[in-house]
Amino acid sequence: MEAIIPETVHYTAFAFLLIALVLAFFRLMRGPTIHDRIVAMDLTASIIMGFILLYSVLIRKAFYFDIAIVISLISFMGTVAISTYLRQKR
């Protein structure tokens, strides 16, 4: 079932993700506390996952799914590691 996706859909979806990336970067730069920055980094990892999934549809290669799995693993571990470190630092 190789459906045909219109080009407009691709461009709109990429544009949405790009705007989301810019907004997350904005919060990453001026977040008042370090926890805001961790949340923004978590969101950034999810946005990158979305980019990779959309790109795999664009070039029609299914093996890009593995990268999405790895990114979700690493972002979770990074978030938990940093927040645990912050809690035990004091």
């Binding site: 949405f16 705007i19 989301a20 907004l23 904005f26 919060r27 946005i47």
Partner: peptide, 17 residues
């Protein structure tokens, strides 16, 4: 599905701001 998924991620970023 693709459009609404990316739209929800955009809404999350908007909420973050």
């Amino acid at each position: 599905l693709m459009l609404s998924g990316t739209l929800f991620i955009l809404i999350a970023a908007l909420g973050l701001i």
